[in-house]
């Protein structure tokens, strides 16, 4: 009677033979970037003067202590206005194929412009940004040094993007495992296997364990939709694109609670269960959740080098 089971296993095995290559690639230990620009970008990233009420900086929502993401369910902008979305991590964002939840920015520089001008985030206009930067002797000097001219809005974005490029978190346990430098624990191993057989890896793959495609939240059992969600529907207007988001990276996922675009889930375990329900149509066993959590925790890397070094 176990013949079907065996057949099914054999079938799974035959499929497994097809993907000898790992779907996940380690991130490089270092990345090349323009040091001077990145240092300027770091300064700008942390400068609340770049917001209309001088209360919000980039770093306000992309906390270096919380995996480059916002520990609050949704971000709070100038004048204490709450946003509609949980800020995704700025770490390793360089490796994403597009930026923002719905991928509306093609690169980091384009992305950086968004929150700066969003009235409920930093609420600045180009002229004000330039006026501020030009009034500051230090900025003037540094911009002159790097861009050979007085500060401009565009160059400021360029510097911020260069800084964000440097924000990589290398040498997580899983990367070291991929490079053959270490062994995974049994639980982690089981977790990784589940990650692949449950179908997580069909979306969460590549260098960033995600961030390289769009996917629907709620394939099997729909996820409740709100007009304010920053999904693909906002861009394409196609009903099928409702609740379609850029697949988020799972790197440092253990640090970036709360989870999902709406920051509605406070723990990793709960997030796993929710994903399983909506996209697999089934519940995970406690054992599966434990193993998957172990695996996901192995994706936590080192804090970006540029944040550790004193200027």
């Amino acid at each position: 009677m176990n013949i079907f089971k065996h057949l099914t296993l054999l079938f799974l095995l035959s499929q497994a033979l097809l993907f000898a290559a790992e779907p996940i690639k380690p991130i490089p230990k270092t990345i090349e970037y323009d040091r001077k620009k990145a240092e300027l970008g770091k300064l700008l990233f942390m400068d609340p003067q770049l917001s209309s009420d001088k209360s919000v900086a980039c770093v306000s929502c992309h906390s270096f202590e919380h995996g480059g993401a916002d520990p609050r369910p949704v971000s709070i902008g100038v004048h204490g206005v709450t946003g509609n979305v949980n800020a995704p991590t700025v770490y390793n964002s360089y490796f994403n194929f597009r930026q923002f939840w719905n991928g509306r920015a093609k690169d980091l520089k384009e992305q950086a412009s968004g929150p700066l001008h969003n009235p409920i985030e930093m609420g600045m206009v180009t002229k004000e940004v330039e006026k501020y930067l030009r009034s500051n002797g230090y900025y003037r000097k540094v911009f002159q040094d790097i861009y050979k001219k007085e500060p401009t809005h565009d160059d400021a974005l360029d510097a911020i993007a260069e800084f964000e490029k440097a924000l990589i978190t290398p040498d997580c346990k899983f990367d070291r495992f991929l490079r053959g430098e270490t062994e995974l624990s049994e639980s982690e191993k089981r977790g990784y296997r589940l990650f692949k057989t449950l179908g997580c890896a069909t979306c969460h793959n590549g260098i960033n364990v995600g961030g390289n495609s769009f996917q629907k939240m709620g394939l099997i059992f729909p996820y409740p939709w709100k007009e304010s969600f920053p999904d693909r529907y906002h861009i394409t207007g196609t009903p099928d694109d409702k609740n379609v988001y850029k697949v988020p990276t799972l790197r440092n996922i253990a640090l970036t609670a709360p989870y999902f675009h709406d920051g509605s889930v406070p723990t990793l375990e709960l997030a796993l269960q929710k994903m399983a329900y909506h996209n697999l149509g089934f519940d995970l066993s406690a054992e599966e959740v434990r193993d998957l959590t172990s695996f996901l925790k192995s994706l936590t890397g080192k804090k970006p080098a540029i944040l550790l070094e004193e200027r």
């Binding site: 499929q15 497994a16 097809l18 993907f19 290559a21 790992e22 779907p23 996940i24 690639k25 194929f97 692949k196 179908g199 890896a201 069909t202 793959n205 590549g206 260098i207 390289n212 495609s213």
Partner: peptide, 12 residues
């Protein structure tokens, strides 16, 4: 399309 899971980065 063929492999059950695949590194999408290759496509991108």
């Amino acid at each position: 399309s063929y492999f059950p899971y695949f590194d999408n980065d290759a496509v991108l």
